Computed example of a mutant assay.
Amino acid sequence: MHVQTLMMEGAPAVQLQGPTGDTVTVLLRGAQVISWVDATGVERLYRSPLSPLDGPQPVRGGVPVIFPQFSGRGPMVRHGFARTSLWEWLPADAAGAEPQLVFRMQHAAHETPLWPHDCACTLTVALVPAGLRMTLAVHNTGNSPLSFHAALHTYLEVGDVARSTLTGVLPQGEVLSLAEPIDHLFESVPGPFALRSPATALDLVHEGFTDAVVWNPGPQAVIADLPAGGYARFLCVEAASVGVPVQLAPGAHWQGSQCLFIAT
């Protein structure tokens, strides 16, 4: 295992290398996983080449942390503040039995008038055998209950989304075709999910999260930080708790994880 700090296009980041040569790279801004390269050297996540890593806009690609608001479902900035906040890397936690990186964000009630709550969030990113596990934990450090949405907005490299399929989100094992644009919240889906595409074969498992969001904008969408034809290379399959917001009493904890496993 090897850990190093580095600058990626002007943005501070931490990179972890596992015992088999696989690597994961995480920005301090947003604790955003920006790269996951497997032991064979294949990049498994998509990142738009038109999206700067050093801000001020959120980075399009990798795994943005969505908290405490999903999309426009509330009064705050779209997708909340976690993905643009500066997180702290906790280096001591990288030395455990399982190769992992841990990041922390502390939020005070006065920082966001539209969401006046004290809380602490941690994101743990672990390289597991033939896979990547990301765990988001939230601790209500205040004196009043709080409510939030959370999601790991995972951009997966698929090569050609129109030739990709996803199973596990529809009942009775029905296959979800991805030949058309999609932006859908699948509520109360336990998984696991199986993604098969020209570029990848992944099995996705989540715990703690209740829902899944599947998104691809399709060819007609005009997105400033996405190159022409870029839509075809990725599919977002995100573990989420959105349909029913998470409720946390003072002092209570919540956590949800998403595991990406390379299918054999």
Rank of each mutant, 00 (worst) to 15 (best):
P91H: 06
P129M: 08
H149Q: 12
G21C: 08
E207C: 04
P198C: 10
E111W: 15
A179V: 07
F103D: 02
V169P: 04
L170P: 12
V102M: 12
F67R: 07
V158Y: 00
I182V: 14
V26W: 02
P91N: 06
L132I: 02
T141V: 05
T141S: 06
L90I: 11
G21D: 07
D211M: 12
L235F: 00
R47K: 13
A108L: 15
V14R: 00
G159E: 09
M1Q: 08
Q4P: 01
P198G: 11
A201P: 01
I262L: 13
N140A: 06
T122R: 15
G18P: 09
V14T: 04
S164W: 03
G41N: 08
T165S: 14
A240I: 07
A94K: 11
T167H: 09
F186I: 13
A240K: 11
A120L: 05
P58V: 02
R83W: 06
V138F: 02
G230A: 03
F70M: 07
V222D: 13
G61E: 15
F70C: 07
G18Y: 05
W36F: 13
T20F: 08
L204Q: 00
R196D: 06
R29A: 01
A221R: 07
A126R: 13
P12A: 05
A263M: 03
H184R: 15
V77C: 10
V65S: 01
P129V: 08
I262W: 04
A212Y: 07
A97W: 10
R163D: 12
L127P: 03
E238D: 09
A212T: 14
T135R: 08
M76H: 03
P68T: 06
V42T: 12
F81S: 08
V14K: 00
V26A: 00
L260K: 03
S71I: 02
R78A: 04
V158F: 00
L132R: 08
P91E: 03
M134K: 04
S71G: 12
L45H: 01
G243C: 14
S177T: 11
D38S: 11
A13W: 02
E187H: 14
P227R: 08
F209H: 13
G243H: 15
L114I: 08
D160L: 00
P190E: 15
G173A: 12
H149I: 10
P91G: 02
G21R: 06
G18I: 02
A137Y: 06
R44E: 02
V158M: 01
L16F: 10
L45C: 01
P190K: 11
F148E: 08
T200F: 00
Y155D: 07
A228R: 13
